[in-house]
Amino acid sequence: MPPTLPHAEAFALAGPAPGASPLVFDSPHSWRAWPAGGTPTTATPSQLDTSWDAWVDEIWAEALAGAAPLLSARFHRAYIDANRARDDIDPAMLAQPWPEPLAPAATSRRGMGLIRRDVLPGVPMYTQPLAAADVRARLQRWYDPYHACLAGLVAAAQRAFGLCVHIDCHSMKSVGNAMNEDCGAARPDLVVSDLDGAAADPRLRRWVVDALRAAGYSVGINTPYRGGELVRRHGCPVAARHSLQIEIRRSLYMDEARVVRHAGYSQLVRDLGRFARQLAAALDGELGVLLPRCLPPSNPRRENP
């Protein structure tokens, strides 16, 4: 069994007060420990580490240096995944019928739905079905508070600036495995996703991709990741809410086999810090002029002093 967190909160929030920046960052998969309670998993800590977005919250916290809000989950993504829809549940995992309709997606069929079925290809997480009450408790204690906090951050940014740019932060294996759509394929340094254009203005995505390529990184777009539930919920360009998912190839900053950081970590932090500062400046300048804003009549956009 992995270590447990008997009194964990659902999330940690770093950075300035909500609404201090049009940028909002979140990291839903960067917590390593397993919450206490519920059906125990038979997965080992080393097996769970293969799905952990290793140090992604720390990478972005160091890069941002307090300039924008950063929300980080404090529950393991295999326990309940904040980047999956609430109804993305494999009914075969449940000991009782679920009281509402379920809509298991392709992620569930590959063992990576809201509640993870397999820790590795063909290696189950549990030896028995989960009680529906257990899954309901995970939603209420962990999943829902995380989503509520992120929704509040996005709304506060939009109220203050007329728009919000949400960056959903992840890491990815250097080569996809049998639970991924790109099994056996080598991946680029970074992948920027926006649900094939549905979650962000194309000018914003183009700016982000160009800036990351200018920093020397190879950047894929919507392949092998299109974006998950967090991008879907918070990306609505016509309402001036833009959401992008950024995946970082783990070998850029860590030894994946030994699960330790290497010298590339510091360089990545510096590059992402420069990127975040450039993005904030662009939103306050020419890029921000191009993106439509939705301002309530009684709350005009704040001007920088």
Rank of each mutant, 00 (worst) to 15 (best):
G152C: 03
P91L: 08
A17C: 00
A67T: 00
R226Q: 14
G176R: 10
A178K: 02
V175A: 03
Q158E: 11
V24I: 14
R249W: 05
E58C: 07
D49I: 02
P2Q: 03
D134H: 05
G37W: 14
S266K: 08
G37H: 10
A156R: 04
R74E: 06
Y217V: 09
R84S: 04
P224T: 06
A65E: 14
G176C: 11
V208M: 13
D134G: 04
S72L: 08
V175K: 03
G38D: 14
H234G: 03
S193H: 06
P224N: 11
P28N: 11
I248V: 10
R187E: 03
D90W: 13
P300A: 10
H170E: 05
Y143T: 04
W207A: 07
R205S: 12
P28L: 11
V135M: 05
D118K: 01
L163A: 13
C294Y: 10
A105H: 15
L114R: 11
A133T: 15
L102V: 11
A20G: 08
R249K: 09
P305L: 11
L295R: 13
N180H: 07
W34G: 00
L139E: 13
A214W: 04
E9A: 15
E9R: 15
I246F: 06
P22T: 09
M1S: 08
E229A: 15
R141A: 13
I115Q: 00
R226V: 09
G197T: 11
L291I: 09
V56I: 14
I115L: 12
P40N: 06
E286H: 10
L153M: 08
F275A: 08
T44D: 10
Q278E: 15
A92K: 14
L120Q: 13
Q140N: 13
Y253D: 04
G216E: 09
P18S: 09
P40R: 05
G273I: 05
R74L: 04
A155H: 06
A198R: 12
P45A: 04
D90N: 13
L291F: 06
P300R: 12
R74V: 00
R213P: 12
G228E: 01
D196V: 05
Y225T: 08
A185T: 11
